[in-house]
């Protein structure tokens, strides 16, 4: 187990997961600084999404350590990891389609998480005001009463981002936030992300190179579950190994 280093929000060390002998993530280490936006890129099957799954507890690691502000996340349950301050957005928009935008955001509001807390939970002005504020940030303040099922694909992605924002996580993990979006939506999302990554650490998985260049502090290139290259966008782009396995195609 690694000792917590205050220079880093997240320390991933020797992280390994093996599915029936196949190592999807193999002895991976990387460190995320406060307020850093780390983008993970790599070819299909490189293990990008699996890394996020391991950090948020969705997949159990075979070996290694994930230290978040001194907490060893690998020993914690998913909901405990969320309460520690880690938020995760899934690749396909995961919103509650039968509920309204307001209710979607309300369920993500960080209060009343126990069974009896949820029974006793009441909508007060603080909750409503906060939901209104988030809804404005994610361009959905006119759709609060709309069922999430009726939103466009891009709007669902925004809604899920909003559901994470309302929890105010210190580490936000986004899995392909602009995939499947129109050009206009993509531009708006970049603007949204640029705004919300200001005061927190973010890990983003993305394929869109223009988008990556726009938001990344540092880039990690994964290949077959291992780090192929790491550094600024410029450095990574000029790394011959990266060009060969990924960018060259």
């Amino acid at each position: 187990m690694s000792v917590h280093n205050p220079n880093f929000v997240l320390m991933v060390e020797g992280l390994t997961v093996s599915f029936d002998g196949f190592k999807a993530v193999d002895d991976l280490s990387f460190y995320v600084e406060p307020n850093e936006c780390r983008v993970i890129i790599g070819p299909n099957g490189a293990g990008k999404t699996t890394v996020l799954d391991l950090i948020c507890g969705r997949t159990k690691a075979t070996a290694g350590s994930v230290n978040f502000k001194g907490n060893e996340l690998l020993n914690m349950r998913e909901d405990q990891i969320v309460h520690a301050g880690v938020g995760r957005k899934f690749q396909t928009p995961s919103v509650y389609e039968d509920l309204t935008v307001f209710e979607n955001l309300e369920l993500s509001y960080p209060k009343g998480h126990g069974v009896f807390g949820a029974l006793a939970f009441r909508r007060d002005d603080t909750v409503t005001a906060r939901i209104q504020e988030i809804a404005e940030t994610i361009f959905l303040d006119d759709q609060l009463d709309e069922k999430a099922a009726f939103l466009s694909h891009g709007q669902k992605q925004w809604l899920e981002i909003g559901m994470l924002l309302i929890q105010d996580p210190e580490l936000l993990m986004l899995d392909e936030p602009v995939a499947g979006m129109s050009v206009a939506e993509r531009k708006k999302t970049a603007e949204l992300l640029n705004r919300i990554i200001q005061d927190r650490s973010v890990i983003v998985i993305e394929h869109d190179m223009g988008f990556v260049e726009d938001i990344a502090t540092r880039v990690t290139v994964l290949h077959q579950g291992k780090t192929l290259s790491e550094g600024s966008m410029e450095r990574v782009q000029n790394d011959p190994k990266v060009v060969e396995v990924y960018l060259g195609h």
């Binding site: 998913e78 919103v95 006793a120 939970f121 559901m163």
Partner: peptide, 25 residues
């Protein structure tokens, strides 16, 4: 009508999203 009722519906449709919103499903 409580938040728990809405959580049940949310769990039925997107269990993982509820779990990763900090609830012990």
């Amino acid at each position: 009508k409580s938040k728990l009722g809405r959580l049940l519906i949310a769990m039925r449709d997107q269990e993982d999203r509820v779990r990763f919103s900090g609830y012990n499903v």
